[in-house]
Simulated assay, not measured.
Amino acid sequence: MTKVLVLYYSSYGHLEQMADAVAEGARGAGAEVDIRRVAETAPAEVIAAAHFKTDTAHPVIESPDQLADYDAIIVGAPTRFGRMPAQMAAFWDTTGGLWAKGALIGKVGGAFTSTASQHGGQETTLFSIITNLLHHGLTIVGLDYGFQGQMKMDEIVGGSPYGATTMAAGDGSRQPHPEELEGARYQGRRIAALAAKLAA
């Protein structure tokens, strides 16, 4: 059975919801899916002052070496000034040993993100994640236009050909739109399906 890892970081729970949707889509394609988050690196006083969401059902990934156990790796992180946040970058900075061995070459990967606003750096953040995956030799699958929900013009929704996205609003009050969650499921299915074909 194809094994998929959904690896994410979420400050306020938006990316956690998207990760659950990505995983749901991958399971729908017949994959065995694990959801893990990267460790929080912000000081406790910052977490408290900013009211980060600290309760989650998903455990922290124990070691970067675990990445080698999966056929596909789907990475989600919010934007920080148009790029992935320090928490996710810090994790990928520990994967040099895997890179040196070529341990992730040939796996399938993808990215998803959240921004405060419609034009808050979604695509540059996705590229900052995808760049790491490409350096490791992963084949990237985005959110192709087979998912027509990202083409809506009657209301604002996330979505990009480079990956599923959502918008949280500056105060975090906007929750993922059903169309955005469906885009995440679609991308999860596509990645899991391709990984299964490559492993066959």
Rank of each mutant, 00 (worst) to 15 (best):
L198S: 12
A21V: 11
S11Y: 13
W92P: 00
K152G: 06
T41K: 09
L15E: 08
I61S: 12
T166H: 10
L104F: 08
G170H: 13
E45C: 09
A29N: 05
A39T: 06
Q66T: 11
G97K: 15
D154P: 03
D55I: 13
V6Y: 07
A100M: 13
Y12A: 15
A164L: 05
A193Q: 12
T131C: 06
G172E: 09
R36V: 04
A48W: 00
L134E: 10
N132F: 06
G121R: 12
I73R: 01
F112A: 02
I140P: 04
M167P: 01
V22A: 11
R190N: 02
L134V: 14
S117P: 09
G76V: 00
P176C: 08
L7A: 10
D69W: 07
D55N: 09
V75C: 12
A72N: 03
I35H: 04
G96C: 11
Q148R: 06
R80A: 15
G109A: 10
G121W: 09
G158W: 02
R174F: 02
A199S: 14
V22M: 15
G137S: 13
A169V: 09
R27S: 04
F127W: 08
G109T: 07
Y9N: 01
A68G: 10
I105P: 02
R190E: 03
S10F: 02
I130N: 05
V38E: 01
Q87T: 07
P64E: 13
A68Y: 00
V46Y: 05
G183F: 00
A77F: 08
T94R: 13
T2Y: 00
L194Q: 09
I47V: 11
P85I: 11
G106W: 03
T124K: 08
A164F: 02
P161V: 15
A193Y: 02
I105E: 11
T2V: 13
G97V: 02
E182R: 04
A90E: 15
D20Y: 01
A90P: 09
K3I: 04
A168H: 01
E24M: 09
Y8T: 12
W92C: 11
V60G: 12
F147Q: 02
T95S: 10
D55P: 07
S160P: 04
G142E: 04
G149P: 00
V4M: 03
E32Q: 13
E182H: 02
G30H: 07
T41E: 06
Q122H: 10
G102N: 07
R185N: 06
A169H: 08
T79C: 10
P78G: 10
V46I: 14
Q118F: 14
L104H: 06
W92H: 07
H136D: 15
P85Q: 07
R37F: 03
A50L: 11
Y8M: 11
G28W: 00
L5E: 03
T113G: 09
R37M: 14
Q87H: 11
M151G: 07
I140Q: 06
A23P: 11
V60N: 10
V108M: 09
A29E: 03
M167K: 00
R37Q: 15
S160E: 01
